[in-house]
């Protein structure tokens, strides 16, 4: 059986996106968009799926699937916006804040 990784956690969140994904779930639950049991079910499904050992990636996938099932958004909309954010990041000079407005394809 596989051993446990007991190396101490340096920080609560390894990268900022993990903190943001975590906090969005807490905030949406507090607004009553879903119950915590609904959330645990969604997370459990992703944790068990292939790649589920990457915990915050599973967390993000669970949030996305829950928002799609609640008709808050659609996967194509998330895909398109994520690509826009990627383009904006590439077009933004190093050291400056990345804004969605910096996406060169935005007004096209």
């Amino acid at each position: 059986m596989s051993r446990l990784d007991l190396s101490p956690d340096a920080r609560v969140f390894a990268e900022p996106w993990q903190a943001e994904a975590f906090a969005m779930v807490v905030a949406l639950h507090e607004r009553g968009l879903f119950s915590w049991s609904q959330w645990a079910d969604a997370l459990s499904t992703q944790v068990k799926a292939p790649g589920g050992e990457n915990y915050y990636a599973a967390w993000l996938a669970a949030l996305e699937s829950l928002l799609v099932s609640l008709n808050v958004t659609a996967t194509v909309e998330v895909d398109a916006l994520a690509e826009a954010w990627q383009r904006a990041a590439h077009a933004t000079p190093h050291g400056q804040p990345i804004l969605l407005e910096n996406d060169p394809a935005r007004s096209a």
């Binding site: 993990q18 943001e20 969005m24 968009l33 915050y56 958004t73 998330v78 994520a82 954010w85």
Partner: peptide, 20 residues
């Protein structure tokens, strides 16, 4: 992952479901 989180945040803020 960062772009996907930002995409979700953009959608949720736009719909008034999340306050940055």
């Amino acid at each position: 992952m960062t772009a996907r989180v930002r995409a979700l945040e953009t959608i949720l803020v736009g719909k008034g479901l999340v306050d940055p």
